[in-house]
């Protein structure tokens, strides 16, 4: 029997050699736990993320926009499922994952605790929130855990339309009436900073980062990803005549990156701890949907059992 230290060394050697870890392979408990936490948090974010957009499906301004928004929200349901399935390969069951979300033990992305007040928010969410998510997800396509990486590849393929449709909404509004343009600018003003916070706390304060990088769960730090997002997004705002709400934003020739203002980390932690504008409402909606669906889950199972019994009876007679 190999001792723990040897197993850990072999594990790290596999990671260093870029060999993916698969469900039945030996892995350190902390690796398993980190992945369950991260993948389930990611799955919950997809599911809770359906709520702010679901809010606008019935009020989309045209049939085209409505069909697109429906498709996007349906994708997010699917993405949640890919991720729950990936988490389940680590030996935790779906029921526990859902229960942890409902009890508040598991987190989801704080961005979804902000309200979607106007139609322009559908543009800003697609462009900025999905844009920020994509930065993170593209990196995760190369994560060391096989089922997570495969789920991410599938998600990234589907996600790119999400950002493009959002940007198209912003573009249309920005070229519209002065009132529509104001609406687009207002949405950018409200979603810009929370989008930057999606990358998590600064590297100097991030407790999970170091091990995650060593295990190649993550390959870039929170601050690196945030910078990459700012660099990609600022020119997109300029192109459609919108102004990023940051007086300190400035191109830094020497660094080859944009410098940007300090984030309000007090707000970040307040929202994480449950005091954002919509935390309570979002969770209540999730719990209600789950409880209201209980009879469907039970009925489907009862129906399946009845069909099976009948098939067995027919088989016995024949």
């Amino acid at each position: 029997m190999q001792n723990l230290e040897q197993l850990e060394l072999q594990f790290q050697a596999k990671i260093d050699a870029e060999i993916k870890i698969e469900p039945k392979d030996w892995m350190p408990e902390a690796y398993r736990k980190t992945l369950i936490r991260q993948i389930s948090q990611h799955a919950h974010s997809e599911i809770v993320g359906m709520l702010p957009e679901g809010n606008w499906i019935t009020r989309a301004p045209s049939l085209r926009r409505k069909a697109v928004l429906l498709a996007k929200v349906q994708d997010e349901g699917g993405h949640g499922l890919y991720l729950y399935s990936a988490a389940e390969t680590l030996g935790i069951d779906r029921d526990t994952l859902i229960h942890d979300l409902h009890s508040g033990k598991a987190k989801y992305s704080s961005i979804f605790n902000y309200p979607s007040l106007t139609w322009a928010d559908m543009g800003a969410i697609g462009w900025l929130v999905d844009g920020a998510a994509i930065m993170n997800q593209v990196m995760l396509c190369r994560t060391s855990y096989g089922p997570y990486a495969r789920a991410m590849v599938r998600i990234c393929k589907e996600e790119s339309f999400h950002q493009r449709q959002g940007y198209e909404i912003m573009l249309t509004l920005a070229q519209g009436s002065p009132e529509q343009k104001r609406m687009a600018q207002d949405a950018l003003n409200r979603w810009w900073w929370p989008s930057l916070m999606m990358f998590g706390p600064p590297d100097s304060e991030s407790t999970n980062s170091e091990a995650s990088i060593k295990w190649k769960i993550k390959r870039m730090s929170n601050d690196e990803l945030r910078q990459r997002f700012v660099d990609a997004t600022v020119p997109q705002a300029e192109l459609i005549g919108l102004k990023v709400p940051d007086k300190d934003l400035k191109w830094n020739e020497e660094r080859g990156h944009y410098d940007f203002g300090a984030l309000d980390w007090d707000e970040f932690w307040a929202v994480v701890k449950g005091n954002g504008p919509c935390n309570k409402e979002r969770l209540e909606q999730r719990v209600k949907a789950y409880e209201d669906g209980a009879w469907v889950r039970e009925a489907a199972l009862a129906h399946a059992e009845k069909k099976k019994e009948r098939a067995e009876k027919v088989g016995a007679v024949a």
């Binding site: 699917g78 890919y82 129906h303 399946a304």
Partner: peptide, 21 residues
């Protein structure tokens, strides 16, 4: 991939929605 379903027919229908959109 994988998914939860009550029976085979439902699994196929869900797989249609999840994996072949």
């Amino acid at each position: 991939g994988s998914l939860h379903a009550a029976d085979a027919q439902m699994a196929i229908e869900c797989a249609r929605d999840v994996y072949t959109r």
